[in-house]
Design a protein around this nucleic acid. Structure first.
Length: 669
DNA sequence: GTAGGGTTAG
């Protein structure tokens, strides 16, 4: 029996789990009915499958009521646990405490407090639990914790340490120090809390001083110092201390500190230093093998992936004896990031138990390279779709401008009763904007419940959606309700909406307001502002804004800005200036730039320049008939019939089809 | 059943 337990534990820890193994375990479980075995199988299921599948497991009959409660709490079924708790009386103190812990962990302090008040026999653990609950809520609750601490009938080292760490986390190191000095007895946890406290608050020297003064150190002391030093950007110091003190730690595994520093190097993209450390991880005194564990390998692979060195990452990955889901996912994410998806699929198909993350990464990867069909095929195969899976698929369609596809997935999601979150709503509102579907957009708006009412991205999407659909009043209503919760995207959406629909004055007024509110405009803001100037025929204002964009805001003008400026100047009839602007542009003029000039030429009847603009357009979009037709009409208007006929011949020669409805072309005007 | 930011991915 104990062998069986060990085998189960072993397999669980490597997470190489197969359905067949589960069948065997289930059979054993039926036979032995041992809780310990049951727990292992449960953890198994939870690791390998989604939690819903694991939760479908019935609580075993042979569990005592106390055990049932802790089982339910452990699996996150707090409400069921509470129901069971309320159904009977005479619980022991440990079970009362367990129930309180559940609420404390979820920071539901009102419920925790209520139980605490009701319980017949509080012990020191009950008090400590409440203390740690208030501490983890932070802010003003720290004072509340202190009141409680002062009222406690007795205190132990845990109470003092909890209070101490509370002060440290809230940045009150003087109070923490005071407490540390008053403590009747200190243990290694007290010292560690002080060291990390100093580091959290940026007192690096003081932390090192304290660390050196410690009467006893364990691996957590070293880890706390190392991770704190990393956060304070002292990687060299961290490595020095690790090598100096690493040989001499008490309880715990030293490799954790190495792993922490390797990961720290990874965050800074320092793969070379990380690898040097990885190779220096010492040997185990007992077995003589390196102390490296699967996390060391994973962290090192991660470093390479972050540094963009996929080859070294793969080399290490192939050398691994024992890979977990994390190793596979990190490697796959590396390939997904550089987009070459072939190798990612290759690994994915070899992966023993892909989890939701693996599936979701593959979907986003395929969407990113525009392979929506592959993404969708994969999506359909996901055994249990998480919200992230749905969201990845919807945003995949949306980003590839397949708005109907996005909408279909969303409808399917609704049918399956899945609740959308902020990501879903934001993508689907963008899809409504793309489809210019006001009815659908308004319906989605109604789905935006109280929970999302102050959500910035969602409100931005709403403004964009209403703007695009031409519902300017509704857009402005959402925008106004956002009050102080606005970012540059909100302003851009609203100004852009006004500009796009020809409300130039409103666009410019809002832009003024934006500047008054000290919001830094982006290059997108200026596209809308310049377009608004063009629309309203404000040549001086347009020139001024263009210059202020470059000189005051340091924004490099893009081709879109030039197109708008050409439009502004051209509409005003200054065609020569517009042409010389195009010639002086640092970037290649695109169809919008030439289109603006051509439109201006049409309005101001400059046939020669129109010809130059049209020819440039013909090169850029050889399939479009618009420049031919427009030039043809201009020639015809001034009676240059030969030139008009030439346009027709050229169209035939270049095999350009005349678009239906283009008998009079005003598309550039 | 309580105290030390315990390590890694989208």
């Amino acid at each position: 029996m104990s062998n069986l337990v060990m085998v189960c534990r072993r397999i669980w820890s490597t997470k190489t789990f197969h359905a067949a193994a589960l069948t065997v375990f289930n059979a054993q479980l039926q036979f032995h009915r041992r809780p310990v075995l049951f727990n292992i199988v449960f953890q198994f299921k939870q690791t390998c499958f989604s939690s819903s599948k694991a939760n479908s497991f019935q609580v075993p009959e042979f569990y005592s009521l106390n055990k049932k409660i802790s089982y339910l709490i452990r699996t996150g079924r707090i409400n069921e646990a509470r129901e069971l708790f309320d159904s009977t009386e005479h619980w022991n103190t440990i079970t009362w405490n367990r129930m309180i812990t559940a609420y404390v962990k979820r920071r539901e302090m009102l419920k925790a407090r209520q139980l605490f008040e009701e319980m017949p026999n509080r012990d020191i653990v009950s008090w400590n639990l409440m203390l740690s609950g208030y501490i983890s809520c932070g802010g003003k609750f720290v004072e509340r914790a202190r009141n409680m601490f002062d009222q406690m009938p007795e205190t132990d080292c845990v109470s003092w340490n909890t209070m101490l760490s509370g002060y440290a986390k809230s940045g009150m190191m003087d109070k923490a120090e005071e407490l540390f000095n008053e403590m009747p007895e200190r243990n290694v946890v007290s010292w560690n809390a002080m060291v990390s406290g100093y580091l959290m608050n940026g007192h690096v020297e003081k932390a090192i001083e304290f660390f050196k003064l410690m009467p006893k150190r364990d691996s957590a002391s070293l880890r706390a110092l190392i991770s704190g030093l990393i956060q304070n950007d002292k990687l060299v110091e961290a490595e020095r201390i690790l090598l100096q003190y690493g040989g001499n730690v008490g309880k715990g595994d030293l490799v954790d500190a190495y792993n922490t520093l390797i990961a720290g190097y990874g965050q800074k993209g320092m793969a070379y230093e990380a690898r040097k450390l990885f190779d220096r991880i010492p040997l185990c005194c007992d077995c003589g093998y390196s102390r490296r564990n699967v996390i060391s390998w994973n962290s090192m692979i991660m470093c390479y992936v972050r540094a963009g060195d996929i080859v070294s990452a793969r080399e290490l990955f192939d050398k691994m004896v024992e890979r977990d889901t994390f190793s596979w996912n990190t490697m796959i994410s590396g390939y997904v990031q550089i987009l070459d998806m072939k190798e990612a699929s290759n690994l994915f198909s070899r992966m023993p138990e892909p989890d939701t993350l693996s599936w979701n990464m593959m979907i986003s990867g395929f969407s990113e390279i525009g392979s929506l069909k592959l993404a969708h095929d994969l999506f359909k195969r996901i055994p249990e779709k998480s919200l992230v899976s749905w969201n990845s698929m919807i945003s995949g369609y949306e980003k590839n401008e397949d708005y109907k596809g996005a909408m279909n997935i969303f409808l399917q999601m609704q049918l399956e009763g899945k609740k959308p979150d902020r990501h879903t709503l934001s993508s689907i509102l963008s899809a409504c904007a793309g489809l210019v579907d006001l009815v659908l957009g308004t319906q989605i708006h109604q789905l935006v419940t109280k929970a999302f009412i102050a959500d910035l991205p969602i409100n931005n999407s709403l403004v964009t959606m209403y703007s695009r659909c031409g519902a300017i009043v509704e857009a402005r209503m959402v925008f106004d309700e956002m009050n102080l919760q606005r970012d540059v995207i909100s302003w851009n959406a609203m100004i852009g909406g006004y500009a796009y629909h020809g409300f130039a004055t409103e666009a410019l007024q809002l832009f003024d307001l934006m500047k008054q509110c000290n919001v830094q405009p982006s290059y997108i803001t200026f596209i809308s502002v310049l377009n608004a100037c063009a629309h309203a025929g404000l040549i001086e204002e347009g020139r001024r804004e263009f210059n202020s964009m470059v000189n005051t805001h340091g924004i490099k003008p893009q081709v879109e800005h030039y197109a708008a400026l050409v439009d502004i100047i051209g509409r005003h009839g200054q065609l020569e200036e517009a042409m010389s602007l195009i010639n002086s542009m640092p970037c290649e003029p695109d169809k919008a730039v030439w289109g603006a000039l051509l439109g201006a030429c049409k309005v101001h009847n400059n046939v020669e320049m129109a010809r130059a603009a049209a020819e440039a357009l013909m090169k850029l979009q050889p399939e479009s008939s618009a420049p031919y037709v427009l030039l043809h009409n201009m020639y015809a208007d001034v009676g240059r019939w030969d030139d008009a006929a030439e346009m027709r011949t050229m169209m035939e020669k270049n095999n350009v089809q005349k678009d239906a409805g283009y008998s009079r072309v005003d598309s550039y005007c």
